[in-house]
């Protein structure tokens, strides 16, 4: 059987399903695959007078600005580290809160708290940065005003780099908890009540039920979130870093990520090639990581793999 025949047969047998997928396919072709030609910019010298494919091919030249920066390794480590922390703590906290919330019986309390936990998601980082400055600035910040009131020495948060590692993670969690919690909450809602009934009869207490039923049932959701997070592990959260840290070079050693570096250093450069090459580096990194992890997951349990 030639593959063509197989495809045709598939097409005719499942034409409704193919039709149902069609909008999605068209969408991604237009919105994602066609613009992907732009990756070629990474290997050319940008020229206003020539179209993309007529531009001069320069090979890996554009990548030099990343290698030559001398801090690519540091940036990579920072980006990976923060994202790993976001994934780990983000999911653990979201699962934890979702489980607690799902067991609360007081309806109004449940609804109210859930709404409020969603609030931070709406506060843009620009505005958050203003609030944070008001909390932590040395001269008149909320924290130092409190410390002084208790006759303690004020702390200089904005000149203490290490503090920002936990702080940034905390602000990330704070902002995204409500969002990721909803995903897990929906997953918990989907778990059939029968499992719990059965376990009750077996004499399991609530802690057992959570640990042996709820948590395993969330594995699937977790894997999806994980694979998506891994794919963009070299990107993302630009605003969080850019707004909270801004021009404060003192903190860069521990807070600079690839996105902020690229943004700052190319702000005044209009060469599209440089920015594209940085994006490609991030993509390749994520791609390799995801392919590896997905293969491993597939080995363990085919059901959980993404593709």
């Amino acid at each position: 059987m030639t593959p063509r025949r197989g495809l045709l047969r598939e097409l005719s047998a499942n034409r409704i399903m193919f039709l149902m997928l069609l909008p999605v396919v068209v969408f991604f072709i237009i919105n994602a695959y066609i613009p992907m030609v732009g990756i070629y910019y990474a290997f050319t010298k940008f020229d206003f007078n020539r179209s993309l494919f007529n531009s001069e091919f320069v090979g890996m030249e554009n990548f030099k600005f990343l290698w030559n920066s001398g801090i690519l390794a540091k940036l990579t480590v920072n980006t990976l580290g923060y994202n790993a922390a976001f994934i780990l703590f983000g999911n653990v906290l979201a699962i934890f809160c979702a489980i607690l919330l799902s067991e609360i019986r007081l309806k109004w309390f449940k609804k109210l708290t859930q709404s409020i936990m969603f609030l931070p998601y709406f506060i843009s980082f620009v505005i958050l940065s203003v609030v944070v400055y008001n909390l932590f600035n040395y001269d008149s910040g909320f924290l130092n005003t409190m410390l002084k009131a208790f006759h303690m020495n004020p702390v200089d948060v904005y000149n203490t780099p290490w503090v920002w590692v936990p702080l940034i993670i905390i602000f990330y969690l704070w902002k995204n908890l409500g969002y990721s919690m909803v995903i897990y909450l929906a997953a918990i809602t989907g778990i059939s009540e029968e499992y719990y009934e059965a376990s009750k009869i077996d004499g399991a207490n609530i802690f057992h039920r959570v640990w042996y039923i709820t948590v395993p049932m969330l594995k699937n959701t977790f894997v999806v979130l994980l694979l998506f997070a891994l794919g963009s592990i070299m990107k993302g959260q630009f605003d969080l870093f850019y707004q909270l840290i801004g021009n404060n070079g003192v903190l860069y050693n521990v807070t600079d990520i690839l996105d902020t570096y690229v943004y700052r250093s190319l702000k005044v450069t209009f060469d599209i090639g440089l920015a594209t090459s940085a994006g490609l580096y991030q993509s390749l990194f994520g791609f390799i990581l995801v392919m590896t992890v997905n293969t491993i997951i597939r080995k363990i349990n085919d059901e959980y793999a993404l593709f």
């Binding site: 598939e10 499942n14 399903m17 149902m20 997928l21 999605v24 396919v25 991604f28 919105n31 994602a32 695959y33 066609i34 613009p35 992907m36 030609v37 732009g38 990756i39 910019y41 993309l52 694979l227 998506f228 794919g231 963009s232 599209i272 920015a275 594209t276 994006g279 490609l280 993509s283 994520g286 791609f287 995801v290 993404l306 593709f307």
Partner: peptide
């Protein structure tokens, strides 16, 4: 469609969709 076990190409389509989160052509071509 993608979760139908009897849909043979579901993994390829999933990959087709997922792939777009990894690679992008950047802002300009879009």
């Amino acid at each position: 469609v993608l979760q139908r076990k009897d849909f043979k190409y579901r993994n390829y389509f999933s990959f087709f969709i997922y792939f777009t989160t990894l690679f992008g052509g950047g802002l300009v071509p879009w």
